[in-house]
Design a protein around this nucleic acid. Structure first.
Lengths: 241, 241
DNA sequence: TTTATAATAGCACGATCGTTCGTTCTATTA
DNA sequence: TAATAGAACGAACGATCGTGCTATTATAAA
């Protein structure tokens, strides 16, 4: 496949770090397509243009390679989704930014041609105890706690109702993300993005409402995200907008 | 490592079908744990107590074995979730039965020790074109269309509001199922089942409401599934009620 | 009891897996 | 210029993968 990414040129000193970065970059792309367990040293070496053994020397074993790839996936996620959102005002704006960045991150075909490595790793590893599973589990728990915290801040700020169950809010949010990933990739549903945006809109309204989502917003009930007539508007409007 | 499921006893004629059934039973269990791609003929043969080649002869190739396993998973799902629900009255009761059966089916550890084969297969196969992917995709689309149809019937029967977007309803439902699967298995969240039941309750109320879910039901807003104070009641009440 | 057939076992194949080893090449340092 | 350390290579290891071929066994039909 794509040979000569490193080529035959020799590297030394700081060049080793560069090589490692190139390897991980390619590894992340392959893991996105084949899964973290489907990532193979031979295939990776071929894709990166070096020998198996030369590549292997950069990591002390396959576990280490996989762990490095997962760590890179987490870093990418934090950089693309979480960090930018923390530059937004506390509360609902920050939460909306997170959701917006999240969808856009999942849409980034150039970096994740085969979908999120962390989501697929979750399913591959959920029955395989070990370092990898622990890592992914911790990463996901941290993420969910981030959503929860953002929701709680939105309550503090008065954006959300004060009896909001932040845990359930985070749970629903993450479920919708999984749904988006699944409907888009496996089911190839062209409406997937519209659906996830409308779902986000729905739980945001629900969280905002003191009594009734539709009324609080001055909207009619049929616009609360579950009606057919709201489709046109919803698909045009961005979640984070 | 459970040897001697077939043992050394020889089988004949109709016994062959029986052997095939035993093989598939074991294969389904392994595929639940290791994934449909992680299912290996050698491991399966050992688990079932026969030789690789002897087992192999029952299927003309690994594709065929995998396909048979997936077909069995679909049949099981239909038997456990869909078929019983069609014995319920049209509309919302039938829909509630589907959701209830679905959760209970996912909880069936004896049959699915490693979670749903179809869900994990979705992620394994979403980038691997071929017969297997086509099969899983079709199975899932059929299922989702079943939910949609049940929702539309509930509209016809007057249980749900007439402007309900059945597609989005089915989308949300399936997303919550994925969320449940994920939170329960990977994140080991003890509240996963409570969350999925409350989420189902929420979208059912949303779908039922003509104007505002909380009002229509004569309930206060803080009981619409997103408030902390509703937790105790919700966890005690079953989805299918 | 003999015969035909279906079911299983035994064995070996080519490929690929992760991993190890010794070697070569290069750049830096003494 | 000589010595050293780092990076990559090629070859090979034992295992296991899916898959054929052939022989053996057990059952069903004669």
């Amino acid at each position: 496949m794509a040979t000569d990414e490193v080529g035959s040129m020799q590297m030394n000193g700081r060049g080793a770090r560069r090589t490692r970065a190139v390897i991980l970059e390619t590894a992340l792309r392959i893991a996105s397509l084949e899964g973290i367990e489907g990532l193979t040293i031979g295939e990776l070496a071929k894709a990166v243009g070096m020998s198996k053994s030369g590549l292997f020397a950069h990591f002390r074993g396959k576990d280490n390679l996989q762990l490095s790839v997962l760590q890179m996936a987490v870093d990418r996620f934090v950089d693309a989704v979480l960090r930018p959102s923390f530059r937004q005002p506390r509360g609902e704006p920050r939460l909306r930014a997170m959701l917006k960045n999240w969808v856009e991150h999942l849409n980034d075909q150039s970096r994740l041609p085969g979908g999120s490595v962390l989501i697929s790793a979750s399913i591959e590893l959920d029955d395989r105890p070990g370092v990898l599973r622990d890592f992914v589990q911790k990463a996901q728990k941290d993420l969910i706690r981030n959503i929860e915290k953002a929701a709680r801040i939105a309550v503090e700020e008065g954006h959300f109702r004060d009896d909001l169950d932040a845990e359930l809010f985070a749970w629903s949010t993450y479920s919708f993300v999984l749904g988006y990933h699944h409907f888009k990739r496996m089911l190839e549903d062209p409406k997937a993005e519209s659906h996830v945006r409308r779902s986000f809109k729905g739980i945001l309204e629900m969280a905002r409402a003191k009594e009734c989502a539709a009324r609080q917003d001055g909207m009619k009930a049929k616009k609360n995200g579950f009606s057919k007539t709201a489709v046109k508007k919803a698909s045009a409007k961005k979640v984070g907008g």
